[in-house]
Amino acid sequence: MTMIDREAIERLGDNMAAQEVAGRSPWADARRRFLRNKAAVAGLIVLMLVLAFGLFGQHLAAWNNEDLDFNVMGMVAEKGQPSIESGHYFGTDELGRDLFARTVQGTRVSLLVGIVGAAIAVVVGTLYGAISGFAGGRTDQIMMRAVDILMSIPYMFVLILLLVMFGRSMWLLFLGIGLISWLDMARIVRGQTLTLKNREYIEAARATGVPGWRIILRHIVPNLLGVVAVYATLLIPLMILTESFMSFLGLGVQEPLTSWGALISEGAKTMNYGTLWQLAFPLFFFVITLFAFFFVGDGLRDALDPKDR
C-alpha cells in the first residue's frame, strides 16, 4: 500500500497552494507540461485503448464469454490455441470458454474495482481529512489519533476475514478494498487543509457567516482537487493489485464473473500443461494498464508541481 511517495504528494500540494497568484491559469500550464511528458501521454493513450477494449470488446468477440466450445473441451492444449479461424482470438481457457470474451469481461470488472475502490477511498479520505484539518484543536487530535491506530491493523488479514465471514460478494470486496486505503488520503488532505485554512478567502467566507461544512465543501475541497486527482490515479492500480491478490486466494470476484486477477491465477495454474496463452493475454492487459496508470500518475504529479523536477 505504500508505493506512493506521500512526501512528494504533500510537497506538490504545498506548491500548488503557493502558486495561485500566477497570471496564466495554472491548469493550462499543467496541461502543457503534461502533454510534453511522452511517457505520460503514451500511458494515457494506452489507458484509453484498454478502456475501449473493455467497453466495446464484446462486439468483436466471436464467442460468448459463458459458452463452452465442445470441439476444444478436453484437448485444450492441442486445439484451444489462439487462432483466427476458430474465433478464439486469445485461445480458450481450461473449460473451453473463449478467452477473448473472458478477458473483455475481466477488464471491465478490474477497472470497475479499481475505480470504485479508489473513489471510495478518495471521498472518505478527503472528507475526513478536510473536516479534521478544518476543525483543528482537540477534534483534529482525536481524529488523527484514530487514523494512527487504524493504520497499524493488518488490513489484508481483516479483508480476508471479512470476505470469508460475510460471503464473497463483489460489493463487499469493493467496499473493503476502498475502506482500507483512505487513511493515507486523509493524512495528506488534512495537511493541505491546514495550509489552506488561514487563507484570506476562507476568512472572508467565515466573516460573512458561511457555515463550516459549506466552507469545507465549497472552498476547501475544490482547492484540493489537484492532490486528490494525482493520488487517485496512483491508487487505482493498487486497488487492482489488491483485488487480484484476493482473486488469487479465491476470495475475489466469483464465477461466472471474472477479473484480471482471477484469469491470471487460473492461467498460472495451468501453465505447466503447455497452455501459456491463458496466462499471457490477461497478464499482458494487467501489466500494461498498471504501467500506464503509474506513468500517468507520475506525469500528473510532475505537471501539477513545477518545482519538483
Binding site: S244, A268, K269, L279, V287, F294
Partner: peptide
C-alpha cells in the same frame, strides 16, 4: 523496478517454478 512492481508475487512464483524447477 516498475516492471517488478506491476508483476504481483503470485505471478512471479509460478514463473519461477516453471523456469527453475521444470
Amino acid at each position: 523496478s516498475i516492471g517488478a512492481q506491476v508483476l504481483p508475487n503470485f505471478v512471479i512464483a509460478p514463473i519461477l517454478v516453471l523456469v527453475f524447477t521444470l
